[in-house]
């Protein structure tokens, strides 16, 4: 559906996008993740044909964006970082204009009406865009991208400026859209990507640092074999007991917690060994209650930080 090959964008001496390659399949929702200034928007602008790449190719539905721009652009609906709205138009006129611009061949009024209901802007339909709040403007921007029913939707930070309720609505909407469309969604909010996307691409300093499902990303990098245990009892003796457990690599006392008599331990076993049951049995035998025990699974936040801060381009993930 979308094929991006060896994309490079050079701004003077700065490489905004550095040899990025990925493909997006039909019906996939791809999350595009990266800190501010990582090259997300630049990449999206290149995919949609707003900017040209210094080298590399973008193919959409078999149409090369530079050789056959009109056909490639026909299948894209794009919401840029700032929704491209004409402030002096009403929502109705604006969407009509976008409809004509896309040379859409659907029943006009019905189509526009459906989109308005989908993004919930029917109540501001006849108002000037200039008088709308940021959330509404953002939604008009999304509506604009949906017009003409494009096969590919490219949304650059679609939930920026919305209140929490709207954010959830828009996320659900995107999920819904992902059933029929191919979606690329950029964000610097990890939970959003985690909630919506089936696949995540992490980009940092213009380079692709990871390309996987959110679950795989956290699994590959997770530390399933390390636990944090909170136990009530004498610290030294618990420590000794824990170190005797088979396959144990290291035990670290994290100090006294709560109101005393309760201690946290960070426990690391050999990779691939599950020692949770053993820990429970041995502590139970001594009548030292376990108040909590959790595996130190990394959240997407941790992975993200790990991927983007350590400059190792193969940081565990592909």
């Amino acid at each position: 559906m979308i094929e991006v090959k060896n994309l490079v964008k050079q701004y003077g001496k700065k490489r905004a996008v550095d040899d990025v390659t990925f493909t997006v399949n039909k019906g996939e929702i791809l999350g595009f993740l990266g800190p501010n200034g990582a090259g997300k928007s630049t990449t999206m602008n290149i995919i949609t044909g707003y900017l040209s790449a210094t080298s590399g190719t973008v193919t959409i539905n078999g149409h090369e964006i530079l050789d056959d721009p009109v056909n490639a652009k026909k299948s894209i609906g794009y919401l840029p970082e700032l929704p491209p709205l004409y402030l002096d138009m009403t929502v109705k006129d604006y969407l009509d204009f976008v409809y004509d611009l896309n040379k859409a061949k659907l029943p006009r009024n019905q189509h526009i009406q459906e989109i308005c209901e989908l993004v919930k802007i029917t109540d501001v339909y006849n108002r000037l865009i200039k008088n709308l709040s940021k959330g509404y403007r953002q939604r008009v921007g999304i509506a604009q991208a949906l017009i003409g029913n494009p096969e590919v939707l490219i949304l650059d930070e679609p939930t920026v400026g919305l209140d929490p309720k709207q954010i959830i609505e828009i996320r659900n909407l995107i999920k819904e859209l992902g059933k029929k469309h191919t979606v690329i969604l950029s964000s610097h909010i990890l939970s959003e990507v985690q909630a919506v996307c089936e696949r995540v691409i992490v980009i940092n300093n213009g380079k692709l640092v990871a390309d996987d499902t959110p679950d795989n990303l956290s699994k590959d990098m997770s530390t399933d074999h390390t636990l944090t245990v909170r136990v009530e009892g004498p610290e030294d003796e618990i420590y000794k007991l824990l170190t005797k457990i088979p396959n144990m690599v290291s035990v670290q006392a994290l100090g006294e917690k709560e109101n005393g008599g309760v201690y946290d331990f960070s426990v690391e076993a050999k990779k691939g060994e599950d020692i949770r049951r053993e820990v429970f049995k041995r502590l139970a035998a001594r009548n030292w209650p376990i108040l909590s025990m959790r595996t130190n699974q990394l959240t997407l936040e941790d992975i993200f930080l790990q991927l983007t801060s350590e400059d190792k381009s193969n940081g565990g993930a592909k």
């Binding site: 602008n45 949609t48 044909g49 707003y50 721009p69 009109v70 056909n71 652009k73 026909k74 894209i76 794009y78 840029p80 700032l82 491209p84 709205l85 004409y86 402030l87 976008v98 611009l101 896309n102 040379k103 604009q144």
Partner: peptide, 14 residues
């Protein structure tokens, strides 16, 4: 200035 050129340029219009 209003970034509406993004809409025009990315639409299927030469």
């Amino acid at each position: 200035k209003q970034k509406t050129d993004q809409l025009l340029i990315t639409s299927p219009v030469s």
